[in-house]
Each structure stands twice: as structure tokens, then as C-alpha cells.
Design a protein around this nucleic acid. Structure first.
Length: 202
DNA sequence: GGTAGGATTACG
DNA sequence: GTAATCCTACCT
């Protein structure tokens, strides 16, 4: 369950496991957004949620549709969808092809200030799934893209020092219920770093 | 072709 | 509490 590859970037096979194993393991990993001009924006993952096909809260619960098709495919791809007509959410597809599952990335701790004029404190700029897509400029054009090094978005594993701190108990990992659902609210499939300012309060 | 509702957020 | 805002899925 806590098998972690400290090698960056993460390989496709690492995502090809149960979403319930990948979602907590993604905490402490880094999302890297590379822009066409070569600039990078990097953020540590501090909050995730797991969704899978047999779960009524999952978009894939009622079968494959054009929107959810990527969730049914190979692991290691981005699933990006629009919510409430105004915000995008970034998910990482996990597990085997044919079984819909993905990790929703809910909050990042940014490593540096983005060049775009965003207001507010750095540690709150990527607090929430909609905000992190705004600040990282992620939208549906990134849907179904592989999260590999040559792409606009990829994921890097935990650094050695972070993993050491984690094992020393300096980053308490909490598990609780998911946010904003009208179904399956009771499943404890949300993970976050205790005390991190980017994590949702509720 | 019409429409209800949603894995959100900021503001009062 | 509620508005902003529009795609998706599910009807007819």
C-alpha cells in the first residue's frame, strides 16, 4: 500500500493499481505543468479523492459515455471535466483498462508564484480542484492526455527527503469522507495532509 | 430539442 | 445562503 517509487516521473505501471492504493500514495507527489514557452509550475499534492466504477459518486458508475471514456481506459492519463459550467477538475486515471477509476486532485501546495497575475496568498492559490486548474491553466484540452514527461502535465514521485519526513511522522496523512457528493457520501475515500493550508476545511 | 442538476467558489 | 454559469446526461 505504501510502495513508493521516488524516481521521477512516475511510470505508467505505478498508476495501474487500485485507485484506493494510488490516491493516498499520490499525496506528497508533485504535479508539474509545463507551458509551451518552457516555463514550469510545480505543486505538491496535498489532497486527493478516489472514485471507481462500483461507487455511485463516480462519473463512470452508469457506464461509459463520451465524457467518461478516458476513465475506462489505461492508467496514467488525465481525465479533465467541467463542473458547474465554470470550473475544471483534474483527475488521474488508475487501474486496469475496462474498469473506470480515477484520483481527483483536490489541492496543491505550489512551489513558486505563477507568472500570471493571481491575487491571494501562495498557499491558497491551488486550494480546491477548481482553483488548481485555474492557476495551472488546465482545461478540457488536456483531457485524455498521457501524464508523461513530454506532455503539458506530468506527475513526479515523492522526493527522498519528503518520504523521510513522512516516515518520521512530520506529514500526518488523514483519511476521511469525500466532499460535495450527493451519493456515497459515507465512503472514506479522501486523503489529505493534516494542517496543510491548501486543504479544504470541511 | 428541452432541461435538471452538478466531484465549485466567492461573497454577503 | 446564494449567484455565477454551462456542459452532460437523460428525457421527449
Amino acid at each position: 500500500m505504501t510502495e513508493v517509487k521516488p524516481i521521477a516521473p512516475i511510470e505508467q505501471s505505478w498508476f495501474n493499481r487500485s485507485v484506493l492504493a494510488v490516491a493516498p500514495d499520490l499525496i506528497g507527489c508533485t504535479i508539474v505543468r509545463q507551458f509551451p514557452d518552457g516555463q514550469q509550475l510545480r505543486g505538491l499534492i496535498v489532497e486527493t479523492e478516489a472514485y471507481q466504477q462500483d461507487d455511485p459518486g463516480c462519473h463512470g458508475y452508469r457506464g461509459k459515455t463520451p465524457r467518461t471514456e478516458v476513465m475506462f481506459g489505461e492508467a496514467g492519463y488525465a481525465y479533465v471535466y467541467l463542473i458547474y459550467g465554470m470550473y475544471h477538475c483534474l483527475n488521474v486515471v488508475t487501474d486496469r483498462a475496462g474498469f473506470a477509476s480515477a484520483v481527483l486532485i483536490r489541492a496543491l501546495q505550489l512551489e513558486s508564484m505563477p507568472t500570471q497575475p493571481f491575487s491571494g496568498k501562495l498557499d491558497r492559490l491551488a486550494a480546491g480542484p477548481g482553483k488548481l486548474c485555474q492557476v495551472m491553466q488546465i482545461d478540457r484540452s488536456h483531457n485524455a492526455q498521457p501524464l508523461t514527461l513530454d506532455q503539458a502535465i506530468w506527475v513526479e514521485g515523492r522526493s527522498f527527503s519528503w518520504q523521510q519526513q513522512f516516515e518520521a511522522g512530520q506529514h500526518p496523512l488523514m483519511q476521511t469522507t469525500r466532499i460535495g457528493l450527493s451519493q456515497a457520501q459515507d465512503l472514506p475515500w479522501r486523503w489529505y495532509l493534516k494542517g496543510n493550508p491548501a486543504v479544504s476545511k470541511t
